[in-house]
């Protein structure tokens, strides 16, 4: 028997490399969702994994780091917030 595929629909899903029930420590939204400023999850609203082991939405932690009082420290563990280069 010979089958000819005429058409197909490809479906894929993605998720961040983070535990699925994990939420951003700043906005408390799941990492698979967006920071409160964004509408579409994905590359437009990435997550940032700190070297200290704490992850946040890039936009959330950016807002925090930009406040003078944060002194560049992770809001969870107060170590200097540094992240792994991809």
């Amino acid at each position: 028997m010979k089958v000819t595929i005429k058409t197909y629909n490809a479906v894929a899903y993605w998720r961040w490399d983070a535990p699925s029930d994990d939420v951003c420590g700043i906005c408390r939204v799941q990492f698979d969702g967006t920071c409160p400023n964004c509408r579409f999850p994905g590359d437009d609203c990435p997550i940032l994994n700190g070297k200290c082991g704490h992850s946040f939405h890039l936009h959330c932690v950016n807002d925090w780091i930009q406040t003078e009082s944060s002194r560049g420290l992770c809001p969870m563990c107060r170590q200097k917030f540094e992240f792994e280069a991809e």
Partner: peptide
Amino acid sequence: HQPGEDEMSGELASERWSAAQ
């Protein structure tokens, strides 16, 4: 307290406000 204010108070940064509070 904001993490940055009154440096001389002797408060540790770890006890101050952070965005995770």
